[in-house]
Structure formats: C-alpha cells, structure tokens
Design a protein around this nucleic acid. Sequence first.
DNA 1: ATGGCTACGATCCGTAGA
Length: 254
Amino acid sequence: MKLATWNVNSVNVRLPQLVEWLAVARPDVLCLQELKAEEPKYPRKELEAAGYVSAVSGQKTYNGVAILARGAPADVVPGIPGLADEQKRVIAATVQDLRVVCVYCPNGQAVGSDKYEYKLGWFSALREYLAAELQRHPRLVVLGDFNVAPDDRDVHDPKAWEGQVHVSEPERAAWRALLALGLKDSFRLFEQPEKTFSWWDYRMMAFRRNAGLRIDHILLSDALAQACVASGIDKAPRKLERPSDHAPALAELA
DNA sequence: ATGGCTACGATCCGTAGA
C-alpha cells in the first residue's frame, strides 16, 4: 500500500501535474495541502476521472486540505476537534484499515511573531488530538506539510538556518513531542541519500542548487512502522515547468 | 545584498508562503 503527501500550492494550477503524477506514481492514498480553493472550485470530477475520490476541507486563497483514495474515504473529520480555527489545515478519514490524518501545519513566519506563537499552540493541539486518535486507531498514519525540519540533516545550510523558523528548538521540540506519542518518521526508517529535501524556495535557483528543507513528512504508528518497506521523496514534479515548491513524500506498507 | 518567485484577490500592489 502506497501512501503519499504533496503540498501542491493551488490544486487548480497544479491539476494537470497532479493527474499525471497520480497516473505514474499510483498511490493508494494521497494527502494534499494548500488547495487554495473552496469546495465548489475543487476539481473533484477531474480527480474522480483519474480514479480517486476526495475528502475535502477547502478554503479560498489560503490553506485547504484533502485526502484522495481509490474508494470513498469514510468517517471524515475536518479540523482538530475542540480547536476553534478558521484555517482549514486538517482532515482525517478512514481508508481501508488505516486511519489517515492529513495536516498542513502553520508556517510560523518568524520566530517570536504572532504566527509563530499560533504555530506552537497549534502543534500542542495536534499532539492532544493524535494522542486520542492513537487510542482509537492503532493503525494511524499522519501525512502532510509539517513546516518543521526535524534535524540538521534536513537542512541544506544548517548554519544559515540556525534558530530560524522551521528549525528553531521549540518547533523541533513540538515535532519530538509527536514522535513521543509513538509515531515514527517513515523517512528515517531507511538509509537515505544525504541532502534529501521536500521543499525548495522558488527564488535564487534554490532547486538547482538543492538549497532545500525536508518539511513534508509521513508519521506511522508502531503497528504501521513495522510494515513499512520503503519511504522517500519524489523530486520529479519539482523539475517540471511551473511546479509546486514542494515535492511529494511517499511511504510504502507491505 | 534580508531581495531574488509564485498564487491569490484585490487592482497594476499587498499578503502570504518557507
């Protein structure tokens, strides 16, 4: 079973690339972030023609998340229950025997900013939610754009990024608090090429210089981590004309 | 050099992303 996550930076702009990627990569589950579209403008029919049914929590201009699967996702829950948040950043659903949580974690803008404080509070609410989900669903997978590079291996230039948003110690502590629930970073279950990233700035020819961060992740509960046989980043879509600034992350379960 | 893209929704610039 192939699981994937991709921050597409506008589902409608990226739709041709998305349809093509689905045909080539053939994931069983795909989580999308930054739809930048409300439900009426979500390309549901086009994606159904490509063989995927979507559970969607859409928003105009910003945010917006979806779970795509071969059959209709069941027991769909948008948002973090109990958290009042107008930003559409989370959707959960059951696909076959998996509980799937799709997340678009806040960016945080700059350490010390209001958005940074929102990010840390949001991660705290996410941890509480996932703790409860793990109790209900031992076969849990959390996929998405976490906007945190877990350690210096995930940063092209750790010195330049030291203390900055996405790598600051409080953000990394929030990441470790998720792992402490009993979740594994699927990417780190395997030997990986050095300097593997999932996001590259549009500016400064960052992709050509491989000046990136690994901030898109797939977290597996222990039961699923034991069944994971591969994980990685697919850089191919980032090489296309007019790409998303993120590349898809993948994990395969036996 | 603190910018440099890209998308969006408002206009022909501001906000946001990371």
